[in-house]
Amino acid sequence: MPNKPVPLKAVTANRLREGDVVYLTESGLWTAWLNQAATSNDAAAQDEMLKRAEADVAARKIVGPYLVEVTEVDGILQPLSTRETIRAAGPTVRADYRKAPLVADA
């Protein structure tokens, strides 16, 4: 019986200032778009991605980073869990109920 393939994983977190769901990119930046996320099926590479994320936790850019399983379908990354599908789709409250975005102090 062949070995089951190891699923791809990406790092997700929440941006500290706004609380937005974000994903770690290959360049080490954070994006709101799952399809721009860095992915790997190698445990060592996944650990390295988490270490990068922890540096941004220390710098107070993000909170709560963790690995999420994803799959690629027709070149598009898709989460494997219902929870992550909801997180990737964006806020689940009507726009008129959301708080106004924070404005940087001048």
Rank of each mutant, 00 (worst) to 15 (best):
V6A: 09
L8H: 13
K9V: 11
A10V: 15
A10S: 00
V11I: 10
V11R: 03
N14R: 13
L16T: 02
G19R: 09
D20P: 03
V22C: 12
G28A: 11
G28H: 06
W33F: 13
N35R: 12
N35M: 01
N35H: 04
Q36I: 00
A37P: 00
A43F: 05
A44C: 03
D47P: 00
M49E: 00
L50W: 04
L50R: 07
R52N: 11
R52G: 06
E54F: 15
D56V: 03
V57C: 05
A58E: 12
A58I: 03
R60V: 13
V63M: 09
V63S: 06
V63D: 09
P65E: 14
L67E: 00
E69W: 01
E69R: 14
V70W: 05
T71C: 03
E72T: 06
V73W: 00
D74S: 14
D74N: 15
G75H: 02
L77M: 08
Q78E: 13
L80K: 15
L80M: 15
L80N: 13
T82F: 13
A88N: 09
A88D: 10
A89V: 03
P91H: 11
V93R: 08
D96I: 07
D96H: 13
Y97S: 13
A100Y: 02
A100E: 08
L102V: 11
V103H: 03
V103A: 14
A104I: 02
